[in-house]
């Protein structure tokens, strides 16, 4: 009876408790979301750092043979600033702004297809792994293209372009990717 009589006191306490619970659950949800969700740029940077493991460069150009001696992969990109926060392994990767004289990986993140096509044309015979995020990237002669598929990011690999550039793509990577030769899907 006394407790029922004091319901005026209990009401704000219960309200506060429920509010705290809601805040906690939302914060947990947010934390979980941040844990499993990465930004597209971050994901691209991550992929760019993992792809070289599955690519074999010609012997004279392969930085992997020197990586043990501290020679990192040189990754060139047009928009260096957007990727720079995610390249935090200087002993493995050296992020530089395009144009550059020598690089192993070239990420063409420009939205202008003509620029991308011009750059690809410029480096197509060189052992440079070109990575892009454009629907026409395969047709332009690029080697690996990032394609969004729902919440996930998928890869397209142009094995003809890679062969032309003297690069060998690992079957493990090819297994995860859609394989093209030019703009024709294999």
């Amino acid at each position: 009876m006394e407790l029922l009589g004091n319901h005026k006191i209990l009401k704000p306490i219960i309200t506060a408790f429920l509010a705290i619970m809601i805040l906690m659950s939302s914060s947990i949800a947010m934390g979980a979301d941040t844990k499993i969700t990465a930004t597209k740029t971050q994901l691209r940077a991550l992929f760019i750092q993992k792809i070289p493991k599955y690519v074999l460069w010609p012997e004279q150009e392969d930085p992997a043979k020197d990586s043990k001696e501290g020679t990192p992969y040189t990754v060139a990109t047009i928009d260096k600033e957007s990727l720079l926060p995610y390249f935090n392994k200087p002993e493995s990767f050296k992020l530089v702004r395009w144009p550059v004289a020598n690089c192993q990986v070239l990420f063409l993140d420009s939205k202008n297809p003509r620029v991308i096509a011009a750059i690809i044309q410029r480096v197509k015979d060189k052992p440079i792994l070109t990575i892009g995020q454009n629907p026409d990237f395969m047709r332009m002669g690029g080697i690996i293209n990032f394609v969004e598929s729902g919440s996930r990011m998928k890869l397209q690999v142009n094995i003809c372009a890679a062969r032309k550039a003297g690069l060998t793509i690992s079957s493990k990577l090819l297994k995860l990717s859609e394989i093209y030769c030019g703009d024709e899907k294999e």
């Binding site: 599955y54 996930r152 890869l155 690992s170 493990k172 990577l173 297994k175 995860l176």
Partner: peptide
Amino acid sequence: TSTISALDFNDPDS
């Protein structure tokens, strides 16, 4: 060894 790439590229289906 076979699932390294799937994990690298976050591909559970593969």
